[in-house]
Design a protein around this nucleic acid. Structure first.
Lengths: 166, 166
DNA sequence: TATTGTTATACTCTATAACTATA
DNA sequence: TATAGTTATAGAGTATAACAATA
């Protein structure tokens, strides 16, 4: 109830939380877990996302830029660094000789799986204080928010053309 | 139920979500809102956090490093850039002449308030699909998770010494 | 000797603008 | 002409190591 400032930074305190505060703090907690987890493995968050999107896609640089919300020149450098580490490969497109397709290597796929398994375990551990019923309730509430938000914003977190293309 | 890969990247899809997925996606959504919001104002997330922690503190560089989880050299540069923009000031400590205290300027305080108000509004808007009772339930569940996590990890998200010092 | 803060250096990440090679 | 990708450049953000001033 106190007039504590908005937790723009992580702050797990003692007082009552507003829903906004609780959500903000939870997001910092989850993101922090992810960053720490990938950092242990020598990855950045964006490199991890790159590997993540490549798990079920083989996009062009341009498509990657839309998927990740970055400029194509940023993606070019991102892919350079991942390639230098043996995690991805550039495959020339046969349909359009200007394009290159970016694909995971076996090594990259292995690393992506490791990191995501550990991250899942971290988040699952955070949820242990809740009973199964409570977890289900939480999932339901969050899903409602996510689905409504996606509907209201036309899935603005994803460049949807690239995604809906089979 | 499908074997969709872990959403290491934002992905608001159509299938059922696990609690871990829902939480991860929500955290990306919230962080994305924050990044977009502060980006509009020409701020980075870390600059915003810097302003945030300074709202009720006047820490040394070292204390800031603990609060933000960064090396002191990183904080030195961070403060340099904020100072160049007129958002913070370095105040020489009278107790220890090696130390400097970092304080918000009036301008910095104004910017911090603006950004946090807008961010709160964004998150509140996301929660609109829920009834008041549902929001209360969500808050309760998230608070439980946050409090248990803080207890289990000794508040590892904060450098607690600096915080518990009045 | 130990600690506080800065600086030098190196790397990642990001964007804008200019360029090339295809289309 | 327009598009796909790269490169050049500039800047923020981060860490490690070496340093000066103070304790």
């Amino acid at each position: 109830m106190a007039s504590r400032p908005t937790p723009i930074f992580p702050h797990v305190g003692d007082g009552e939380l507003s829903t906004v505060d609780a959500l903000a703090q939870m997001s910092f907690l989850v993101q922090g877990a992810l960053e720490r987890r990938v950092g242990e493995r020598g990855f950045s968050l964006i490199q991890t996302r790159l590997l993540g999107v490549l798990r079920d896609r083989r996009p062009t640089i341009n498509e990657l830029a839309k998927l990740l919300g970055l400029d194509k020149s940023s993606v070019s450098g991102l892919v350079d660094r991942a390639q230098r580490r043996g995690l991805v490969a550039r495959v020339p497109s046969t349909l359009d000789r200007r394009s290159v397709l970016v694909a995971l290597t076996a090594e990259g796929r292995a690393r992506a799986s490791e990191v995501s398994a550990r991250f899942e375990a971290d988040v699952a551990a955070m949820l242990e204080p809740l009973t199964a019923a409570e977890r289900a309730a939480l999932t339901g509430l969050l899903s409602r928010v996510l689905v409504e938000h996606a509907a209201a914003h036309g899935l603005d977190l994803l460049a949807t053309e690239a995604n809906s293309k089979p």
